[in-house]
Structure formats: C-alpha cells, structure tokens
Amino acid sequence: MMRTVVVTGGTKGIGAAVAARFEAAGDRVLAVGRADCDVTDEDSVREFFDRTGPVDVLVNNAGVSASAPLARSTLTDWREQWQVNATGAFLCTRAVVPGMRERDRGRVVTVASTAGHVGYRYTTGYTASKHAAVGLMRAVAAELAGTGVTANAVCPAFVRTAMTERSIRRIAERTGRGEADAEAALAAAAPLGRLLEPEEVAFAVAFLAAEEAAAINGQTIVLDGGGIQL
C-alpha cells in the first residue's frame, strides 16, 4: 500500500537519502525544504499539513548545528538550534499525531544524534536540543502506547553531509590541520572509525517506519559502531 511520507529537511543530505528510499519503495514522498515549510513557525507548519492531508509517516529530519566552547556560544545560535532541532520536531509531530491516532496507524521517526544520548565538547546548543528531541519522542511514544502509531528515533554519529563538511572545515581552520586529518578526527570519535553515509541512516529510518515495526515504540537506534550501548 502506498503511504504518504513527509520528510522535513528532505532536500539534501540525510533527508534526501531518506526520501529516495521511500520513493523507491513506491511511497508518495513530500521532501520538505525551508521554502515549503518553516518548521519553527506554528502557522507555517499548520498550513503545510492542512494542505498535505493525512500523513502515514513523518520523518523529523530538519536540523542545524553550531560549534563553539560554552563561553563563546551565542544566544542566537542556542535559540536557532532549539527552534529547529526541538521545536520543529514538536510542531510537526503535534500536527500529524491526532490524524494518525484517528486512523490507528502511523509512524513518527526523528533523526536525532548520538548527541541526544551523551555530551560532546563545544556543542552545548546542539547536544541540548538533540536531548530534547529524544525526550520529545519518548513522551509522545508513551502517549501512543497501545495504539497503531509509534514514535522512535535514530541517533547517528557523524554523517557525510554538508553539515559535517562545515564542521570539518571549522576544525581545520581552528587547529591548522588539513581537512583530511580533521575528518579523521571526527571519524575517530566513534568506534565505527569512519563517517556514516546518508543511506545508512535512511535504512534505519525505513526500518522503524515499516509496518512490521509496530512493536517498536519509544526507542532509539544508535548508529556509531557500538560506542553507545543502551
């Protein structure tokens, strides 16, 4: 059966890989970019989902990051990361869950991060907002328990995306390393020893969104090669 799948931040990186995977499975996919819907704006989110109609799968993938020591972290960066990574997931999830519950079927999958489980240096806003995204998922899952709707999250380590490329450039600029060495330093942060590919994250998202995954609710799948074991 063809499903309607909404992927926020769906035009590049992880989101594009997720959208491509669902499209390959024959689903109707709406890959949402900022021009389509501002996930941080309540009215924009409501109008978008009113136009979209019933949603079978929501993938909360829109995200931003910034990196700086706590003392140099700005309130602007903090607010932006919370607005996109946490509030955006909240608004989109709130928009689709009532309809899913009425139909007694649906999947919400949030793309969080290993930073949703542990703290990393120089990422106060990002880590805090990803913890919030995971907490949101768990609270929603508790409300959905016993229904045909589930909420789960995937928590990857660094993924080969434009966001990670920017992090690599920042490390190279600040440390004087070459970009290859900076990438190796990021890769070494997880036992996997390399950057994840977007398609690997898409596989985990599709797994949690499968009809056969109805018994999985309130869980996170960590993609880091075994460093975080829950």
Rank of each mutant, 00 (worst) to 15 (best):
L91I: 04
C92I: 03
S113F: 00
G53M: 02
V57L: 05
F90N: 14
P98V: 13
V59C: 09
G63M: 04
S73A: 14
Q81S: 06
T74P: 12
R94E: 13
G53W: 01
V84I: 02
L58H: 05
L91M: 00
S73F: 10
R101H: 12
V111M: 05
A62F: 13
V108L: 13
G99R: 09
V97R: 07
R101P: 08
L91F: 02
V59H: 07
L91E: 06
S73Q: 13
G53F: 04
T110A: 14
M100A: 03
R105M: 06
V84W: 01
R107L: 00
M100G: 13
G99L: 14
A62T: 00
A86P: 01
S73C: 02
E80Y: 10
A86Y: 07
T76G: 06
F90L: 10
S113G: 01
R79Q: 12
R101W: 06
R94Q: 15
S73E: 11
A95N: 13
N85K: 12
T93A: 00
V96T: 07
L75R: 15
E102R: 05
T114C: 07
V55C: 00
R105E: 05
A89F: 10
T76C: 01
L91A: 03
E80S: 15
P98D: 08
S113H: 10
L70T: 12
Q81C: 09
Q83R: 15
T114V: 14
E80A: 15
T76A: 15
V96H: 12
S73H: 11
R94F: 11
R72Q: 15
L58M: 04
P98Q: 11
C92L: 03
S73R: 11
A71K: 03
S113P: 06
A86V: 07
V55M: 12
A62C: 07
D104T: 11
R101K: 15
G88P: 10
W82T: 05
D56W: 02
V111W: 14
L91C: 08
C92P: 02
G99A: 09
R72Y: 08
R103C: 05
A112P: 09
N61M: 07
P54K: 10
R72G: 14
A89P: 02
D56V: 01
L91T: 09
A66K: 12
P69N: 02
V59P: 11
W82P: 00
A71T: 15
D77A: 04
L70F: 12
V84Q: 09
S67C: 14
R94H: 15
A112M: 05
G106W: 09
R101D: 08
L75E: 14
E102W: 11
S73Y: 05
T87H: 04
A71P: 06
A62V: 00
G106N: 00
L75D: 13
W82R: 12
E102G: 14
G53V: 10
L58D: 04
S65K: 11
S113D: 00
L70Y: 07
